[in-house]
Design a protein around this nucleic acid. Sequence first.
DNA 1: GATGATTTGTACGTATGTATA
DNA 2: ATATACATACGTACAAATCAT
Lengths: 230, 230
Amino acid sequence: MSTAAPKRTRAEELRIALADDIVSGRLAPGFRLDERELAERFGVSRTPVREALRQLAAAGLAETRPHKGVVVAPVTEGRLHEMFEVMAELEGVCSRLSAERMSPRERRELEALHENCARFMRSGAAEEYHLANEAFHGAIYRGSHNGFLADNAFMVRSRLGPFRRAQFRVVGRLGKSVAEHDAVVQAILRGDGDAAARLMRHHVAVVGDASADYVASHRPEAQAAAIALR
Amino acid sequence: MSTAAPKRTRAEELRIALADDIVSGRLAPGFRLDERELAERFGVSRTPVREALRQLAAAGLAETRPHKGVVVAPVTEGRLHEMFEVMAELEGVCSRLSAERMSPRERRELEALHENCARFMRSGAAEEYHLANEAFHGAIYRGSHNGFLADNAFMVRSRLGPFRRAQFRVVGRLGKSVAEHDAVVQAILRGDGDAAARLMRHHVAVVGDASADYVASHRPEAQAAAIALR
DNA sequence: GATGATTTGTACGTATGTATA
DNA sequence: ATATACATACGTACAAATCAT
């Protein structure tokens, strides 16, 4: 028995590959997604490429204008702040519901995942911390026992992926992040939904501000402006 | 000069038309969306139809299984409750932010829209009330001063469209709805974000429960089961 | 501002995969 | 279980629109 044959269609594989390239930051916002070039690069015709691009656009990862082509969704500074605010709210709701609904088993798992984060933070293993952090937040999404909410939260989180990476540059951020996680976990474990929501909102807001500021100060235009000011 | 030429593509027009048919309830969940039939009916080839179907699927309005065709997204009872819960939370957030951020002008407009609802409720004008109600909620979305949040809230609201219609069947619901609106408006006007959020969550939860129950008891399966029980 | 090059949008035929008998 | 039928997925060709010259 191996993994059940995925039986994916070409368009799906393209969508997954491109989405991964976008959320990982390998394809920068504004980058032109040329149908022909992608078709050639992936060894398929333009048809599945077009379908993949349309789906990316519908997911908000790309923008398409009739007869003008598709580009990786350019995210303005303002929109970035808005997205982080929504992510903070969504995760806040997930935390509140988790505090109310998590089973004892889920609570134990949450604690374990939190301890994982703390361990990697102390050992300074950045990549491992990142994965553990994703798992931690994912557990809180699922803990809400609302699949639709979890899907939405995950979608927003994915779209913010390329921008969240920036925060790790800020020294000492990981340690504070874990401390904030701890407060959220304690609130969830004692069933204090309002506190859990408030603490999680604060945590994500901090991450968002750090990321948005970092991104803003490293944009090409910002760079040019900074140079011009010298 | 006349209205600037929209210059829409066929696929876009199809997507809009089909989305409208779905959210209005003219196309019932589970309905089979056949490429050839739609192509024939709209007088276009299958290609734009496919693109439209893909976009509908990405937006959650349709479901597509590889090689198995596309159907209008069937919404289980559980998922319906989840969606209403998310809508309640999103609108709650919008209300809290509106309480904090609405300009004096926006607050006056909100009051006016609320009074519109009350008027149509008293005169029993169902269709007009529906439109006024949409405008009321839309004002609160915009009042959050977060376009991304407003977009998401609007999207969820649209997807719930076909199910929310049901609530109007419940006698006396409109009057209670307006009373709930009033409490939300008062909280927003006095800048009490937490109260506004709580009251709006409650309002949408009530609407959701009423709608979900109504829908559940009117589903074909439920009908069959009810008949079998006689 | 017109024209040509380039790219996207549409049409339609073929192949592939799934579900029937 | 194999084969057949059918709908979808893909590929190629053409048309339309945009942008640059």
